[in-house]
Design a protein around this nucleic acid. Structure first.
Lengths: 225, 225
DNA sequence: ACAAAAGTGTTAAGAATACACCCATGT
DNA sequence: ACATGGGTGTATTCTTAACACTTTTGT
């Protein structure tokens, strides 16, 4: 096929899609319909063929296998490439993994969809391949991105309260933060600005609504943490 | 070749090999002997075939095309994977890039070697493909690794003076550091320990020789910078 | 009036920065 | 004696961390 009898490895793309659901960091999984690992949950992934970029493959796979509208992902980032010699029964494969972040990601049912579902990171089912390790890696990357970039914006609506923002940080960092110190830090980072709107959602004082100054990934001048 | 007529993209591995030469961060380049970019300098790279891990391909390519003994690399790290649709004249390719660090890396001449040479980062020749951008990316990664890991060990001998250590930091961070603050910081980081040896190399007070506490990559408890 | 979440300031400890002189050696 | 790089301490500023009460609303 290629010159000199060169045969490339199989190339696959696996995707770690995160969103916050009810204040918990959650990841998108599908249930495998075929061997290997039939009936076991796995990250949505698939082949990447010649002529298709890995990012395009990511989008196609998410749309067809998981029913996710990729235009709703506010941030995507390549994580790592794994060699899978002698692990994947289909032979030598290289898998490129991507992370995607969004807010209110909906799963659209279709014929090609393979039982997609979001699971809390704290409550994952048994996973195929080494996908558990890949999710752990993605989570660590997300944690560190949070501390030196404005990446949180991708997990929130355009308008949000500082409490909602803090909840997202806490869900990802897996620890409680001090409310006063958190607000002080966020405001000095120049990450957000006050809109003069309020959110009234219960029997308590209404909360100020904020917006992000940027809706694109940037490095922060100082660390958050 | 594969089931369902699946044709994978070409997979290549490109390598950014750094070492410090005369106090300057330097990168390994080869001169391309064939089109495309014949006669132009490039990162040493090549095909990765089915059955060969990308790391194995890295080693093979460095040995054959650049005459580098890969066992002398004290640290290797995968950087990123680039899609090269419509950029590489050979068709759609995916390139996985690795960074390698060492000290006193020698180039061994052989028949297969393609004019390998180390160039100072501050004085690079014209480069093929987007290899300039890849080197920039690697340099940034190295800078940030330096601040939160013990990665410097890979660029120094086992025994070294604090001035040599500082010189390496300065070469990579591209800025001068305060000698007293640097030493204070390094010692509190618990990165190195004093051997009771001295290095006498000129008409001045002999310098204490230090060793790293660990010769494997670790995260630091606090940031260096 | 009570419940529930929003909002707000001060103090203490630790980390980062700025800065200048003496020391040990070879020639 | 002098030239060369090695080695050392303090004061200031900034950052982080710890900590509890008042405000605004709905019921």
């Amino acid at each position: 096929m290629y010159e000199n009898g060169y045969v490339p490895p199989i190339l696959t793309v696996d995707n770690v899609i995160f969103q916050i659901i009810d204040g918990h960091l959650s990841v998108l999984l599908i249930k495998r319909s075929q061997e290997p690992f039939k009936g076991i949950y796995a990250l949505p992934g698939g082949y990447c063929a010649a002529g298709e970029t890995t990012r395009a493959a990511m989008g196609r796979i998410l749309e067809t296998k998981a029913g996710i509208d990729v235009t709703k992902l506010k941030l995507t980032e390549q994580l790592y490439s794994f060699d899978t010699v002698a692990r994947d029964p289909r032979g030598h494969a290289v898998s490129i993994t991507y992370m995607g972040l969004g807010k209110d990601l909906m799963i659209h049912d279709s014929e090609t969809v393979q039982s997609p579902e979001f699971f809390r990171l704290s409550d994952l089912p048994k996973l195929a391949y080494d996908h558990k390790a890949i999710i752990k890696y993605a989570h660590e990357r997300l944690q560190s991105k949070l501390s030196y970039t404005n990446a949180v914006f991708a997990l929130l609506d355009q308008f949000f309260t500082l409490t909602q923002l803090q909840t997202v940080y806490e869900a990802i960092l897996c620890r409680r933060l001090d409310k006063r110190n958190f607000r002080k830090k966020i405001l000095t980072l120049d990450l957000v600005h006050d809109t003069n709107e309020r959110l009234q959602d219960g029997a308590h004082r209404p909360a100020r609504l904020f917006r992000f100054n940027k809706q694109a990934l940037e490095s922060l001048s100082r660390n958050f943490d």
